[in-house]
Structures are given as C-alpha cells and as structure tokens.
Nucleic acid binder design. Structure first.
Lengths: 217, 217
DNA sequence: CGGGCATGATACTACCCGGTAGGTGCAAGA
DNA sequence: TCTTGCACCTACCGGGTAGTATCATGCCCG
C-alpha cells in the first residue's frame, strides 16, 4: 500500500474508529493470504498470523472477513482508476493512449500483485447471497468502479474506431480480450525478489505490442 | 459431458467400482456448483442437492471432494487436448492453424462452460498441501496436461516465427496473452438458454481476429 | 499522576461441513 | 421364494472456524 489515497472512510467496511495504518496492515496481510489460499480457505487466524498477531487485532479493525475482502477490492480498483484515468483522458491519439493504459495496467498488476490478484479473481461468487445490506452497498460500489474502469478503455476504442486508427471493431466486445490478456498475468506471473523493474517493463512492453497490433486495421 | 472419452479409469479419483454414468452426473453437478460458489465454499450437500440426492450418493462415487475437483480438471483438459491437438498438427500454414486452435478453444470454453470455468480458475491454490499421495499424482497429471496444451500453441508460434509469418516474438511469452484473452471468457461470458451457436461463433471470430493480428509482423 | 481510550490478547461458543458407519430397498439370478 | 449385491440414504461425529465477550496494557492529556 504505497502512494494511494485511502478510500472514502464512509464507504469502507472498516470499523469507524480504526486508524488507517492499522487497517492497511490488515489489508496487506489479508491480500497475501487470499492470494495464496483463496477467500474461503483463508481463516482469520491466517491473516492474524501473518501480522504476528491474533484474531483480536483483526476484529478490532474489521467487523468481518467479507468486509476485509471488499476493502481489498476497493483499494485495488481505486489504484487502477487513479493511475489509468489520466492516461485515458490525455490529448494524445487513441493508439498512444491505449498503449499507455495497457502498460500502466500491466505494471500495476505486477507491482501490487496480491491486491490485484485478489481483485481479478473476482468477488461476486464468493459473497453470493451471504451479505448484509451494508456489504451489498460496498459490493455494488466495487462493481460500479469496475464498470467505470472498463469504460475508460471502451471510450478510447470508440474514438480510435471513429478516427480510423483502429479497425472497425465493437468496443464493448473488443475490450474483453484486451483486459483478458492483461489480467491473465495474475495467473501465470509470480513476483520475484530481484530483477523486478526491468523484467516487468519487458513483459508490459510485450503486452502493449500484442494489444495494439490486435487493434490496427 | 457429451462426446468425450472418459478418462483412463486407473487415474480417476472415482471409486473403482463406480459406474461411469453415475460418476458423470456427479461431475456435472459439481462443476456447476463450483462455478457458482467456488471450490471451498461448495459443500458436498450442495452437489447432492443439485442431483436431488444426498451426500450418500456423492460418496458412493467419489472418495472425497478433492477427487471430484481433480476429475473435473482432468475432463476439461482432456477435452481441450482432444479437440485442439489435431488442429495444431495439421499441414496448414501456422497462421491458419493458430486461427483454428483459437476458434476451437473459444467455442469449447463456451459449450462446456462449467467444466472449463472450473478448470481455468485454477487448482493448485485450493489443494495446496492438503492432498494425499494418490491425489498428488492426479494433480501432477493435470498440470502435465496443461503444460502439454500450452506447448501445442508454443510450437505453432515457433514455426510461424521461423517462417516469418509472425513477428519475432518469444513463443513462451507470447502464448500467455493469447490464452489470457481466450480464458478471460470464463469471467465475463454467461451461457444463455437460446441463441447459442450464432452468438458463440461471433465471439470466437472476434477472438481469432484479435489474436491473429496481434501476431503478424 | 490518574483517568480514559485506543489497541490488542485470551478464551470462549455455536455452528457448519467433510467424512463415516451402517442400514434399506430393489433388481436379477438360482 | 430366497439370496446376493449394488445403489443409495440416514444419522452421526469430530474438527475447524467465524465471531464475541471480556480482560490487560500502555499512551496521551488534563
């Protein structure tokens, strides 16, 4: 959790009085645990163990496991939106913007891997039905963010098609394989202790190349 | 479960004496349940309920939940291999072969959706550590199948690069975004009762277009 | 220096779920 | 009609886990 705005306090599933740093530590540990074992198989004790703490600490900051899960999703999406939104709206030609967005998306997937991986692996399935009203609202918020994020790509695609930069594709459809090729990173990529930045840049460049070529007339 | 060979009996996690039809019914119900709730959140009772039966029936055919899970993966991978292997090995030029493979992969994802969705969502994570020796062997088998499947694509890419049909990419790397754009289908696609075939063909064609263009020089 | 509050640990409880043990009914021989 | 065995069910157990109630500690502020 480096460099992002915390999400609006009001929408957070955290307990109202909880300090932000304490909350972030929980989220980070939980993201790592969820990444490793999946949501249901992760126990609150798993999360606490990663902090060298006990359940008490976790429940001091969060009311429930589902709330932690939802907050991770919100953080992950918020970071993506923060980074990619300006790139989508710059004055550059559509191809350059898409390239920048794809690169940023790929890099972000790798640099905040646990959060993004949890985010990509989806959430509806895990919470289907079993949510309180408050959680339902948070869930809807995350889904809206996701739709908005996809919308960023769709709009640039529309522009590019209109300008003839891209072939005549259907933006709402074409965006799926684009995000798919990117998000699949969370399945095969494994963060390595060393060599990070250079290797990540290489991977990101290959993604850009593949996507941009796939769009040209 | 239509039209595929059952997997070799010896490697199956099913109980030895279990009839194949009964076993397939369990697998189908389990695939649907896992698709909906995920592996851990799905209970044996969920699976039994889908069959209008009770736990007893499930345990009559399978020794454990993990065995069912593994069998679903094996079925799904086997189907992919059965369909795509001949396409990868035909005498057509690399671009035509990749196109056929991509189309077949996409169609198969949609037509046997629950199985393929479970398969794509991965398995190691859910079973990490907690497997018997017999299950470990089955797990390794599935992983080998997956590697072999990816290898089909890699080899065609290599040929295409050598022939100058594709740009000078690294096949082992380039295969990731290709399968990613395809497998992402399991995240956003939802099978609809009607209109199946035509809509599926349309989606598959768009995938082919995107992938093939992404590979050209 | 003392009281209050944030922070966290400990010790429960209640429940859920995977897996098992042992039975029941029915169909097909003999 | 009796027997055998498969297919499946009922009833249960035991372990694990989310969540809670309560207590301990120490830091800030008057």
């Amino acid at each position: 959790m480096t460099g992002t705005e915390p999400v609006a306090e009001a929408e957070s599933g955290a307990r109202p009085a909880a300090r932000v740093e304490g909350r972030d530590a929980i989220l980070e540990a939980a993201a790592a645990a969820f990444t490793e074992r999946g949501y249901t198989a992760t126990t609150i004790d798993d999360i606490a163990d990663r902090l060298g703490a006990t359940k008490g600490r976790v429940y001091h900051y969060y009311r429930s496991k589902a709330d932690i899960f939802l907050d991770i999703h919100r953080y992950a999406m918020q970071r993506m939106l923060d980074v990619v939104t300006p790139l989508a709206q710059g004055g550059d030609p559509p191809e350059a913007r898409i390239a920048a967005m794809v690169r940023a998306h790929a890099i972000l997937l790798m640099t905040s891997f646990p959060f993004q991986r949890v985010s990509v692996q989806g959430l509806e399935r895990h919470l289907a039905g079993r949510v309180t009203e408050r959680q339902r609202a948070a869930l809807d918020g995350v889904i809206r963010m996701r739709d908005a994020y996809e919308g960023l790509f769709v709009r640039v695609l529309e522009e590019g098609v209109a300008a003839g930069t891209f072939r005549p594709l259907v933006p709402r459809r074409a965006v799926k394989p684009i995000l798919g090729s990117l998000n699949w990173l969370t399945v095969w990529y494994r963060p390595r202790p060393r060599e990070e930045a250079a290797a990540q840049a290489l991977i990101a460049d290959e993604m850009v190349e593949f996507v941009v070529r796939g769009l040209r007339p």
